[in-house]
Structure formats: structure tokens, C-alpha cells
Design a protein around this nucleic acid. Structure first.
Length: 597
RNA sequence: GCCCCCGUAGCUCAAUUGGAUAGAGCAACGGAUUUCUAAUCCGUAGGUUGUGUGUUCGACUCACACCGGGGGUGCCA
């Protein structure tokens, strides 16, 4: 297994060398060895300040002593003590060889362990707003990253398909066209006009009825919607039939958006679920179990779990009218999922406004005695707000400040098409119309996705058309552009006439720009691991931007394909390896890498 | 009121988890194309890291207080 030596990270190899040669404790070396902040300080630096007190010597002296004990190897070229740091310089030729010979490999950390990821989760009937983009793209990225690290990911799109919002659709229909619904809902024969009516509607139409109902802001309408939902909950077949159609229509609508985003929720490992999956019996069993374990109490007629001693407000399970609440349903859902999947981890990719809710749910699961409660993680992210002239506000359907995700995606595609015409007019001759539209999609959608993934999750975002449609600088199109550049070089090299193609000679890569690329490339596995450990796709995003930047600078200065056939072959090898990394990384983020744009 | 999160260049964000001289992009200005795709690249300018105190060899990072913004907080999800 030759590749095993490459599987061990460079850093680990250095740590091992240092421990072996200096006898320093492993914890210390691991904690104090870091990547050097500047090239003139080498590749890795060991800070010696912490040893100063215990050894009673100055950091400077310690650094000198340690440095003198580390011998050079084929990897460690030079060791230099500087003001309390031991700076370690690695052999460029060795690094080039490591990066180019086998390519960059990502070790298997997961060993097939299961991770359930609850993400996207829009509500049936409610508009699919830009706010849902975050959960969708973050969840998708984490799923791909963990899969690459050897985990088995199960994505669940936990639809909000069970609640009064469904009754509001009917109320909206009634308000708009009451001929369809003047009927007595209790008579099956009168249902047919409604069914025919709804069958002709799209998911977006149904959203419209929801909005009509809620924006009417009529107490009677709300009451009626509640009644309808009550009938659904009590298992009324006729309402159930309508519910099924409405759900199907909504999913068709969602599918269209997910298709644009390149996500498919009709597979075994990535599927639609929903609150409707959790039966009243599931919830009642969970609540009964809490009762039995003495966790619950009645307070003002409501069933609660008192979490005061854990520094949290009480968790409400059941309303005084007997109806169960969100928290009870999520506890029941978590138990059902554990029983089905026996996950090693479950991630809830849900906005930061639900932080308390998940803390409560996880705490209740823990109190119920489920040891896996500690493996449930709320992947929270900042809210999207709408910035108007009056200032910031939460998006509101009623105020008309909701921005539909589909509109944003279509706008991005349009913009990408326009730019293509403007900046690459000859593209029309080179590719077919269908290819061109795929390019426009990948670039436009990639821009929107990347825009969302490039910042730390927790940051709130002000929705801004200009920003989301920017294609210059640190953006998705920048990565795309770099990727097509790499691909174009490879294509050109492969098809060049009269060129001998010798084996790459790694010693030829000596330019500082190409060494920088190599050094950055070999960080890829660590970056992917770190993104997973911190549930933070932005770490990968920023890394890819930096990597692309290094290449674009290099490209500007150096000729890749030249008369020097040995050098060309070696540089193309670098280009090909780099392309593999960029392509993989973009794929993890949910961006489709292009060959031409 | 209480709890949680955020505050870094005009704007949007980084900063190897407490390390050496705080870095990018956008916007502005100046430059690079008979050239492997200029959706690129180079340069100039831009900072008392919200404020204050503390912890220590060292603080954007940790603690406390305050200021500003956001979110949550017993019958929505």
C-alpha cells in the first residue's frame, strides 16, 4: 500500500519527526506547531514560549536548542530558530512530488458511519423564499463533504407539511372563488369540484391562496383553517385526499427549484420527509415515555418539561387543549430517526432563531436517557433580512418583502447569459444553444450558492440584489472561470500537434508561484476535514478562492505550454492536479464545474 | 427584564482557534491584452479590530462592564 505514506498528513509527519528527535511531549508539539504565517518563516513554526516557564530558560534559547536537535530529512530541508520560534522549511521538490505523483487524496475518517442531515425543509403552501436557500446549500455542502470523508449521509428534507397552513390554502380558495367551496366538506360527493379545481393548480398557485388567506388577517378565516386542520389530524379521508394533492403539488414546485440547484430529493439517501411522517401515536408514545420518566408536569393546563435547573425556559409539549407542540414532535421524530438509522451524528441545519428550541429538544432527549442526544447538533445560521430604504426588516409575506428563491435563481441565470454575450461573444459559435444554457445555469446558480457559502454560517445577511448578482472578484464565477482556464489548458495541450509528451520531471517546478500552489494544494484534505469538524463550508470556500487566486497569478506570469516540452509536460501535470482539487471542492459546495464559459 | 449571537478598511468579509508586521474582494484611482479565455492580473489609497478595564511573555481572539445591531423568551413552526 504505497499510498499510505501520502495518507499521513504532512503536519503529522513533521510532528513525529520532532517528537522522535527532541523527546518533547506529543501534546506540546501538537498544540504549538502551526503553519507559518509568512513564507520567510518557513512552512511550519513551533512556538517555544510555553516551555519557557517550566524549563526556566528564555524562549530564544529553547528555540535554538530544539532547532539544533532536529535533523534534516528528505522532507525537512532546513530548521531555523528565530526569536522564540523554530521555523521549519520543507523541501519543495519533495512536496511537489507528494502533490503531483498520486494527486491529492482524502483519507477515510468516517468508515461508513451514518450521519443524518435534516436540511432545506420548506413549508408546504408557504412561499419558498430566499431564506430557505441557506439551509439547503449548507446542508447539501455538509452532506457532500462528509460523504467524501467516508461517512454515509442520509439527507432528510423535513417538510413543514403538517399544520394549519394547509387549512389556510382552503380558506384562500374559498375567499377567491367560493363556488368551489360552498360545499359541505362532510359530504364526499361534493368534494369532486374541489379536487378538479386543485388538480389544475400549481404549487405556486397554492402559495397564492395561502397568502390570500393570511393577508386577509381575518379571525374567522384563521378559525376555519384550524378546523380544517383538525379534521385532517383526526384522520378525515376527504381532507386527507386534498392534503395529498396539495403536498404533491408543492413538491413538484420544490423539485423545480432543487433541480436548478442540482439537488435531488428522490433518492434513498436524500429524500423528502415531513412532519406528517410523525404520527400522533409516535408523539403520544414519546410523551408517555417522558411522563414515565418523571420529566413532565402540568402547568396552567399545559404539559411541560421544567428545564429551569439547566438554565433554560420550560419546554412546552402539549397545549392546554391537548394538541401537541413542535418540541414534542421533534423529540418523537428524533427517536424514530435513531431507531431507523442508528446514526453516529444527526445534524439539524436550521436558522439561529431556533437555537433555544433545539437546546431544549436535545436536553429532553438526554434526560430521557438517550445517550445519542449528545450526537445531535444544531447547525445554526444567520437570518436573511430584507434591506429597504426604511432599514432592515424580517421578510414578510404580508408586507410583500418576501423574495422568492426561484426569482433569484432565474435572475442569476439571466445575468449570466447577458454577461456571456457581452464578455465572450464568440461563445455562440463554439457551443450549442443547449450547452450555452447549461453554462448560464451553472455560472448563475453557482454564483448564488457560493455567495451564501463564502461567509461563516452565523453571520446574518442582508439580502442585496447587487451583491448576489456580482460575478467579479471573490465569487462563484471566479472559481468557474479558473476551472475553465485549467480545463482549457489541458485540452489545448492534449490536442496540440507536433508535441512530444515526456514524463513530468518534478524538479523543474521551481518558480515561487508554482511552489505556492503546491503548498496550498496539499492542504486540501485538512481543509475538508476542518470544514466538516466545524460544520463550516465557508472554510472550504475561502480556501478555494485562495487557491484559484494563486493559480491566476501564476498564469499571468508564466507560460504553461511552451517550446520547452519537459517543462510543459510538468506544468500541465500541475494544472491537471490542481483542476482535480478545484473540481472536487466546487462539487462539495454544490457548484457544477464547467469546462468552458 | 432575562438568555443567546454579532460588531475588524466607505461596503461585504478573512485572520491557522492566545502567536511574529491584522489580510482579501467590491467601490475609487492608475496600469497590463498582436498572448494558453481580461468573468483575469499588477499597483495606489484605505485600520486606535465598538469603548473601557483586566488576565500574560504575547489579545481581533479569553474574562468583566458598558455601547450599538440582531434573535429568542409558557400554549406558532
Amino acid at each position: 500500500m504505497i499510498f499510505l505514506i501520502y495518507m499521513k498528513s504532512i503536519k503529522q509527519e513533521i510532528i513525529d519527526s520532532i517528537i522522535e528527535q527532541t523527546g518533547l511531549p506529543e501534546e506540546y508539539v501538537c498544540a504549538c506547531l502551526e503553519k507559518s504565517a509568512r513564507p520567510e518563516w518557513g512552512d511550519y513554526s513551533l512556538a517555544c514560549f510555553r516551555l519557557s516557564k517550566t524549563l526556566g530558560k528564555s524562549p530564544d534559547t529553547i528555540a535554538k536548542e530544539i532547532a539544533s536537535r532536529i535533523k534534516s530529512t528528505d522532507l525537512i530541508e532546513k530548521v531555523q530558530p528565530v526569536t522564540g520560534y523554530v521555523n521549519i522549511f520543507l523541501s519543495s521538490t519533495k512536496l511537489v512530488e507528494i502533490a503531483l505523483k498520486e494527486g491529492i487524496q482524502i483519507p477515510d475518517y468516517g468508515n461508513g458511519k451514518r450521519i443524518v442531515i435534516d436540511y432545506s425543509s420548506p413549508n408546504i403552501a408557504k412561499p419558498f423564499s430566499i431564506g430557505h436557500l441557506r439551509s439547503t446549500v449548507i446542508g447539501n455542502a455538509l452532506s457532500k463533504i462528509y460523504t467524501e470523508l467516508g461517512y454515509k449521509c442520509i439527507g432528510i428534507n423535513f417538510l413543514g407539511d403538517w399544520g394549519v397552513q394547509f387549512g389556510h390554502i382552503l380558506d384562500g380558495i374559498k375567499r377567491e372563488d367560493d363556488s368551489v367551496l360552498t360545499v359541505d366538506m362532510t359530504k364526499p360527493s361534493d368534494q369532486q369540484p374541489l379536487i378538479t379545481f386543485v388538480n389544475k393548480k400549481t404549487g405556486r398557485d397554492l402559495n397564492k391562496y395561502y397568502v390570500i388567506s393570511t393577508s386577509a388577517n381575518d379571525p374567522a378565516g384563521r378559525e376555519w383553517a384550524r378546523e380544517v386542520f383538525g379534521m385532517l389530524e383526526s384522520g378525515d379521508d376527504r381532507i386527507r385526499c386534498f392534503w395529498e394533492i396539495a403536498r404533491k403539488k408543492s413538491i413538484e414546485e420544490f423539485d423545480h427549484i432543487y433541480e436548478l440547484l442540482g439537488i435531488n430529493f428522490h433518492t434513498d439517501d436524500n429524500r423528502y420527509g415531513g412532519e406528517s411522517e410523525i404520527t400522533p401515536a409516535d408523539i403520544n408514545n414519546a410523551v408517555a415515555e417522558m411522563d414515565k420518566k418523571g420529566l413532565t408536569r402540568i402547568s396552567d393546563g399545559a404539559l411541560i418539561v421544567d428545564l429551569e435547573r439547566y438554565g433554560m425556559p420550560t419546554c412546552l409539549l402539549r397545549k392546554s387543549d391537548g394538541a401537541t407542540l413542535y418540541a414534542a414532535r421533534d423529540v418523537a421524530a428524533a427517536i424514530a430517526r435513531y431507531n431507523t438509522y442508528k446514526f453516529s451524528k444527526m445534524l439539524y441545519v436550521v436558522g439561529a432563531d431556533q437555537k433555544l428550541h433545539f437546546r431544549q429538544v436535545f436536553k429532553v432527549l438526554e434526560l430521557m436517557g438517550y445517550s445519542w442526544a449528545k450526537d445531535c447538533v444544531h447547525i445554526d445560521f444567520g437570518l436573511v433580512r430584507f434591506k429597504s430604504d426604511q432599514g432592515r426588516e424580517k421578510m414578510s409575506t404580508r408586507r410583500g418583502t418576501t423574495i422568492l428563491l426561484e426569482d433569484v435563481l432565474n435572475e442569476a441565470i439571466k445575468r449570466s447569459q447577458a454577461l456571456m454575450k457581452e464578455r465572450v461573444p464568440e461563445m455562440a459559435d463554439k457551443v450549442s444553444p443547449s450547452e450555452a444554457s447549461e453554462v448560464a445555469r451553472a455560472v448563475g446558480i453557482g454564483a448564488v450558492i457560493f455567495n451564501d457559502l463564502k461567509n461563516k454560517r452565523i453571520k446574518d445577511v442582508d439580502f442585496n440584489w447587487e451583491q448576489i448578482l456580482t460575478f467579479d472578484g471573490e465569487t462563484g464565477p471566479y472559481l468557474q472561470y479558473t476551472h475553465t482556464r485549467l480545463d482549457s489548458l489541458i485540452r489545448k495541450y492534449d490536442t496540440a500537434k507536433g508535441l512530444s509528451r515526456p514524463e513530468p520531471d518534478y524538479k523543474l517546478l521551481t518558480a515561487s508561484e508554482e511552489i505556492s500552489i503546491i503548498k496550498e494544494m496539499i492542504q486540501f484534505p485538512d481543509i475538508v476535514k476542518q470544514s466538516a469538524d466545524e460544520y463550516e463550508p465557508s472554510i472550504l470556500s475561502n480556501y478555494l478562492l485562495n487557491l484559484a487566486g494563486l493559480f491566476n497569478r501564476y498564469y499571468q506570469i508564466h507560460r504553461i505550454i511552451s517550446d520547452d516540452e519537459n517543462l510543459s509536460s510538468t506544468r500541465i501535470c500541475l494544472v491537471a492536479r490542481l483542476k482535480e482539487v478545484l473540481k472536487k471542492g466546487m462539487g462539495f459546495l454544490g457548484i457544477t464545474p464547467l469546462e468552458k464559459m
